[in-house]
Amino acid sequence: MNYWLIKSEPSDYSIEDLERDRATIWDGVRNYQARNFLREMQVSDIAFFYHSNVKPPAIVGLAQVIENQLADPTQFDPNSRYFDAKSTPEAPRWQTVKVEFMEKFSEPISLSQLKTMFTPEEFPVVKKGNRLSVMPVHPEVAQRLLSK
């Protein structure tokens, strides 16, 4: 099992939305490095759900990958802000996963707390200017977060 961090602005999709929906496709990722991480995700992997672009930004809960290697359907929808005219169903450029709600933390782990717990080398989310929306989490970092 691997661990990941997935970011979302709560105004777009929050941990409360995932709790209500129970599961969702993690669509709309349009960064190649983040897309490549999505391609690496396996069923049963755990994702730390991070609320970004809020005060304070924080890890707010957990999700589990329940399907992987999915074509992101928004790339084919001309009405979607994530439409990609160069992508086709025969050769999709953007893959994603489906995640299922696991839990919402009673106490979010804020970015400022994360900065006191980890170096940028240990956990890149604490690196100034890191805007990557999907990233791996080293198992030792994951265990420290889960024991908090």
Rank of each mutant, 00 (worst) to 15 (best):
P124Y: 01
F101D: 01
D45G: 06
F49M: 12
V54W: 02
T74E: 14
T88S: 15
D84Q: 04
A23P: 00
S14P: 06
F123E: 09
I25R: 13
R20G: 00
L38A: 13
T74P: 03
T24A: 15
E100P: 00
V43F: 03
Y32A: 05
R39H: 13
N36F: 08
F37I: 04
L62T: 03
E19F: 01
P124G: 02
F49R: 04
V29H: 04
E140D: 15
D27W: 07
E19P: 02
S110I: 09
D12T: 13
M117G: 01
V60P: 02
I46C: 12
H138V: 04
H51A: 06
P57C: 10
V134P: 01
Q69Y: 02
S147K: 15
Y32R: 14
N2F: 00
P56T: 01
K7W: 08
V65I: 15
E19G: 02
L70R: 10
P139D: 10
F48Q: 09
R39M: 14
N31L: 13
N79F: 12
S87M: 06
L132A: 08
E100I: 00
P108M: 08
A47E: 01
R22C: 09
T116M: 08
H138S: 09
E140L: 12
V54C: 14
Q69R: 15
Q64G: 00
P120R: 06
M135S: 12
K7D: 07
P78I: 03
A47I: 03
V97Y: 11
F49D: 06
Y82S: 15
F105V: 03
T88K: 11
E67Q: 14
P78V: 03
I15D: 04
S52N: 09
M102N: 01
M102A: 00
M41E: 05
Y13N: 06
H51K: 08
R30Y: 13
P78N: 13
I25H: 10
R144V: 01
Q33V: 12
I15K: 02
G129L: 09
V29W: 07
V97K: 05
D72Q: 08
P136K: 13
P78M: 05
Q64C: 07
F48C: 12
E19Y: 04
Q75A: 09
P10L: 05
M102V: 15
R93Y: 09
G28C: 10
P89I: 11
Q75W: 12
E19C: 05
L146C: 11
P78L: 04
Y50N: 04
D17Y: 01
D17K: 11
E103M: 10
Q95N: 11
E107V: 11
P10M: 11
E122L: 01
S87T: 02
M41Q: 11
H138Y: 03
N79D: 14
E67N: 12
F37G: 00
V99Y: 05
I59V: 13
S80E: 12
W4I: 00
G28H: 10
S52R: 05
G28L: 11
I46N: 07
Y82R: 10
S112E: 15
I66F: 03
A34R: 11
K7H: 07
Y50M: 03
E140V: 13
E67W: 02
E67C: 07
P108Y: 13
F83N: 11
V137I: 13
Y50F: 14
W26G: 08
R81L: 14
E40R: 14
S87A: 15
L146E: 10
A142K: 07
S87E: 08
N130I: 07
S147H: 12
